[in-house]
Computed example of a mutant assay.
Amino acid sequence: MEKETTSERIIEAAIELVSKKGYKATTTKAIADLAGVNEVTIFRNFGNKRGILNAVIQKFSYGPLLQKVIQEQATWDLEYDLYHFSTQYQNYMFSIKEYVLISFKEAGAFPEIDQEVAKIPLFIKQELVAYFCEMEKRGKLTDVDIEAIAMTFIHLNFGHFISRARLGSSVTKISTEDIFKTSISIFSRGLTP
């Protein structure tokens, strides 16, 4: 239990420091000081700064939530499920909006951030592909490139999130709910036999 508590303190300290100072200026020594641990404890728990970065990204990953939603709440009604997945995604992403925007600000200068962040959409893609494959087995999906529709669905959701997170309602006053009702309806009709 103590190890989890120590790891969590280290992760929280890293998040706070990266938010304030940026990734480059955040050192393992500064993280250790803020977390109230010895720097050796960081290396023992995470290996290095990138290990902490990976833990932070995993903490904020939507992938496990999507996996749980699919496993426990899928109705195998395409339009209903996709709307539900989108709603869950938007709610979650807006709850961590500040951290997502920080990761984009930092990513371009640090390839390791891009490499770690890329694991999130890869995991989400994997879960969506599994869902769409099951829909295809059930005869509820037209013969389409499943990876392509999974990526299209990811882009639809992430694109909306980024647009709203950065621009608010300056581009459109249409609510997120109405945008997704319309887009998911159109998307679903194009995939239904």
Rank of each mutant, 00 (worst) to 15 (best):
A74P: 03
K24E: 14
A35C: 00
R9M: 06
K137D: 10
E12A: 11
Y99N: 09
S7N: 14
A150Q: 02
A13R: 08
L82V: 09
S103P: 00
K3G: 00
E177S: 11
V18C: 06
T172P: 10
K125P: 01
N54H: 10
I42R: 05
E72D: 14
G159Y: 01
D77E: 12
L167G: 00
N157P: 12
I162W: 08
Q71F: 04
A148W: 03
A74C: 02
I57H: 12
T6L: 13
T172W: 00
S61L: 10
E98D: 15
F123R: 11
I31H: 09
L191F: 10
D81T: 05
I186V: 14
G139W: 12
I96F: 02
N38E: 10
D77K: 13
Q71W: 01
A165Q: 08
S169D: 15
V37R: 04
I113H: 08
I154R: 01
E39S: 10
Q90L: 14
R164T: 05
E127T: 05
E2Q: 10
L78F: 04
P121L: 07
I57M: 11
D81K: 13
M135H: 00
K140Q: 13
I120C: 01
I31C: 07
I184A: 02
A32Y: 07
S61G: 04
I15D: 06
L101W: 12
V18G: 02
R164N: 05
T152N: 14
E79C: 12
M1Y: 08
P111E: 10
I184V: 15
K3D: 11
V100L: 15
M1L: 06
N157G: 10
Q88R: 11
I124F: 04
F43S: 07
S183V: 13
A109Y: 01
R44W: 08
L156K: 11
K181Y: 03
K29V: 13
K105A: 11
I149N: 07
N45A: 12
A74W: 01
V144R: 06
R166W: 02
I102G: 03
A107D: 03
M135N: 04
S188W: 05
E127G: 00
K173H: 12
F94G: 05
A30V: 01
Q115C: 06
V129Q: 10
K59Y: 08
L128N: 05
A25Q: 09
C133H: 14
Q58K: 15
I113Q: 07
E136N: 06
R189W: 00
T87Q: 14
T75W: 07
E116W: 01
P111H: 04
L17P: 08
E4Y: 07
M151A: 02
I124Q: 12
N157K: 06
Y80C: 00
V100A: 09
L128F: 04
L128G: 05
F161C: 12
A130K: 11
V56I: 15
F132M: 01
E116G: 00
K137S: 09
K24G: 03
P111L: 12
Y131H: 00
F132A: 03
A30H: 01
G47N: 04
G159N: 07
Q88C: 13
Y80R: 14
A55N: 02
G159V: 05
I174W: 05
G108F: 07
V40W: 00
L82R: 11
I52M: 02
Q88Y: 12
R50M: 05
T6C: 02
Y23K: 02
N48G: 09
Y89C: 09
T176G: 03
L122P: 00
